[in-house]
């Protein structure tokens, strides 16, 4: 018996998928609002993408081409594990090319290549509640969202400014969606925040352990919280990629020897490889996408 016959298409049973699908649709109808859903125990641990996996499972059709990334890379072990899971249980095609993918599941990054209509970006979310570290109680934060009472968040950002002269949040940077809900974009670097709003793709967020699904429909306004005199800035390492020379991509810093030498490379491996294949070579790069 193959895995595809031992389990339902894309693993989850139909009743579970219906429940998740209804939650996704309500999430789409109320952008930025966290819809509670009866998250299931998945065959991978909570905290390892169970929310994203459940959302992807509910969305996949047999014709999809799936891309899975972790930290921007297709070859990180957890991305490999999740991609394999769907190959085995849904028999779908997989790809590493952002432009070719119809569904992309991601942890911690938005791909550099702009997304298009017809694509779905599924985020794995550890803590969906943007107010959680300011107020640990769900009963309280739910009330704050209801009353649109985001004063606590502004106080926190303001305290940052008075202490550090700037907002000291580098990732997981909250956004306000369509002027209503403050939303946690998952732990993407704030460099990626500008891609959240006005995106042509459907963006779905799944938090399995915390039992929440939320969404940004295409072309939805998502504004990073800031102050008039301290505007939001998307930041990255002040370098170009050493492999492909890209001046504008998010970079990983790699320590190359025990003397503390380091180099900077694109975190988005598909983006970097495509550039090199197209002839863009950085100071330490080679033309082959493999290396």
């Amino acid at each position: 018996m193959t895995d595809q016959t031992a389990y339902n298409f894309a693993y989850l049973d139909e009743q579970t998928k219906r429940m998740i699908r209804r939650a996704i649709l309500k999430g789409v109808a109320i952008p930025g609002y966290q819809v509670p859903f009866a998250s299931r125990e998945m065959p991978m641990p909570y905290g390892w993408g169970t929310g994203g996996v459940q959302v992807t499972s509910a969305c996949l059709v047999p014709e999809d081409r799936l891309k899975v990334i972790d930290q921007g890379a297709d070859d990180t072990t957890n991305a490999v594990s999740i991609r394999r899971f769907f190959q085995r249980t849904a028999g779908i095609e997989v790809t590493e090319a952002t432009a070719d993918a119809t569904v992309i599941q991601t942890r911690h990054r938005i791909p550099e290549t702009p997304l298009t209509e017809g694509q779905i970006l599924v985020y794995q979310v550890p803590i969906p509640e943007p107010l959680r570290f300011l107020e640990p109680r769900e009963t309280e934060t739910r009330k704050m969202h209801e009353l649109e009472d985001y004063g606590l968040m502004h106080v926190k950002l303001y305290e940052d400014i008075s202490r550090h002269g700037q907002i000291a949040t580098a990732y997981d940077y909250p956004v306000k969606v369509e002027g209503r809900y403050v939303m946690d974009p998952s732990p993407i670097p704030k460099f990626d925040n500008p891609k959240l709003g006005g995106n042509a793709a459907i963006q779905l967020f799944g938090a399995g352990r915390e039992q929440r699904i939320y969404a940004l429909p295409p072309y939805t306004q998502a504004i990073s919280l800031d102050f008039d005199d301290y505007p939001f800035t998307a930041s990255k390492a002040d370098h170009a990629c050493d492999l492909c020379g890209a001046p504008d991509s998010y970079l990983d810093e790699v320590i190359t020897d025990d003397q503390g030498s380091r180099m900077f490379v694109c975190s988005d491996t598909d983006f970097c490889g495509s550039r090199r294949a197209a002839g863009h070579i950085g100071p330490m790069g080679t033309p082959s996408a493999g290396g």
Binding site: G47, G72, A170, P189, A237, S267
Partner: peptide, 25 residues
């Protein structure tokens, strides 16, 4: 304990991107 174990142990997954953002900051 299944929720707790998963979330506790997920911090051994790569966090290069977030760490990089913190490093810059």
């Amino acid at each position: 304990n299944i929720q707790a174990t998963g979330f506790l142990e997920h911090i051994k997954l790569p966090h290069y991107v977030d760490f990089q953002a913190e490093l810059e900051l």
